[in-house]
Deep mutational scan, measured.
Amino acid sequence: YTAFGDLEVFLHGLGLEHMTDLLKERDITLRHLLTMREDEFTKNGITSKDQQKILAALKELQ
Rank of each mutant, 00 (worst) to 15 (best):
T2F: 08
T2A: 04
T2H: 03
A3W: 08
F4W: 05
F4C: 09
F4M: 15
F4V: 12
L7I: 06
F10G: 02
H12V: 09
H12D: 11
H12T: 15
H12K: 15
H12F: 03
G13M: 08
G13L: 03
G13Q: 14
G13V: 04
L14K: 08
E17I: 05
E17W: 00
H18E: 08
M19V: 13
T20R: 08
T20S: 11
D21W: 04
D21K: 13
L22S: 13
L23V: 04
L23W: 01
L23T: 03
L23D: 01
K24E: 04
K24R: 12
E25R: 15
E25M: 08
R26T: 01
R26Y: 01
R26G: 06
D27S: 11
I28Y: 02
I28Q: 02
I28M: 04
T29G: 08
T29E: 08
T29P: 04
T29V: 01
L30N: 02
L30W: 08
L30V: 12
H32D: 15
H32A: 11
L33N: 00
L33D: 00
L33I: 06
L34Y: 12
T35E: 11
T35F: 06
T35N: 11
T35I: 03
M36I: 00
R37D: 13
R37Y: 02
E38F: 03
D39H: 05
E40A: 04
T42V: 13
K43F: 06
N44A: 14
N44V: 14
N44Q: 11
G45R: 04
I46C: 04
T47V: 08
S48T: 12
K49S: 11
D50F: 00
D50I: 00
Q52G: 11
Q52W: 06
K53D: 05
K53V: 11
I54A: 04
I54C: 07
L55Y: 08
A56S: 12
A56D: 13
A57Y: 08
A57W: 07
L58F: 08
K59W: 07
K59Q: 10
K59G: 14
K59D: 10
E60V: 13
E60Y: 07
E60A: 12
L61W: 13
L61D: 10
L61P: 15
Q62I: 05
Q62F: 08
Q62L: 05
